[in-house]
Structure formats: C-alpha cells, structure tokens
C-alpha cells in the first residue's frame, strides 16, 4: 500500500492552487516538485469550489515561487487561495 506521507516537513500556514482539471493538477505537481516546492495533493476544499477534484496545498511563503513556476509553464490555473 502507498505511504500516507507525500509531503515533507509542512507546517503552514497554507495556500492552495486550484486547476481546471485533475490532469492540470497532476502536471503542476510534477513541475513544482521538480523545483523542490514542498506540497501535498488534497481534495478541493468545498468552500472554494464545488469540483470533486484535487488541488495542491503548499506553504504560503512559497506563493510567489508557485505562481512563477506555473506562469512560466503556461499551465492555466483556476486560482490561488489562502486556507
């Protein structure tokens, strides 16, 4: 069975980045991991969207870095929210 832990040393506060599709979130996961961003894939919080998909949670301090990486990749995002 796969390990529960797919994040390393995350403490918060957190932000999440939402995508139009699950495939988009999975592409972003690879792009961000390649740049050593500490992250965790979580279900989209219901108060942010009624999508049944997943989003990426990361340390709020990394917000600009995340925006930069995803911006350069031209991967369209639905938005970044503080949680």
């Amino acid at each position: 069975m796969l390990s529960k832990k797919n994040e390393v040393g995350q403490s918060g506060p957190f932000s999440v980045v939402l995508f139009h599709s699950i495939s988009g979130a999975l592409r972003a996961e690879k792009l961000l991991k390649a740049e050593s961003v500490s992250l965790k894939m979580i279900p989209v919080p219901r108060h942010l969207s009624s999508d049944c998909g997943i989003c990426i949670r990361f340390e709020r301090a990394d917000e600009l870095k995340v925006e930069g990486i995803l911006g350069r990749s031209k991967l369209e995002i639905q938005g970044i929210h503080q949680i």
Binding site: I22, M41, V44, I54
Partner: peptide
C-alpha cells in the same frame, strides 16, 4: 484523480 485520496491521486 476523482476522489482525492492517495490511491486515487
């Protein structure tokens, strides 16, 4: 990817 749990992801 449908459900958000680790196996789905």
């Amino acid at each position: 990817g449908r459900s958000g749990h680790r196996l789905s992801i």
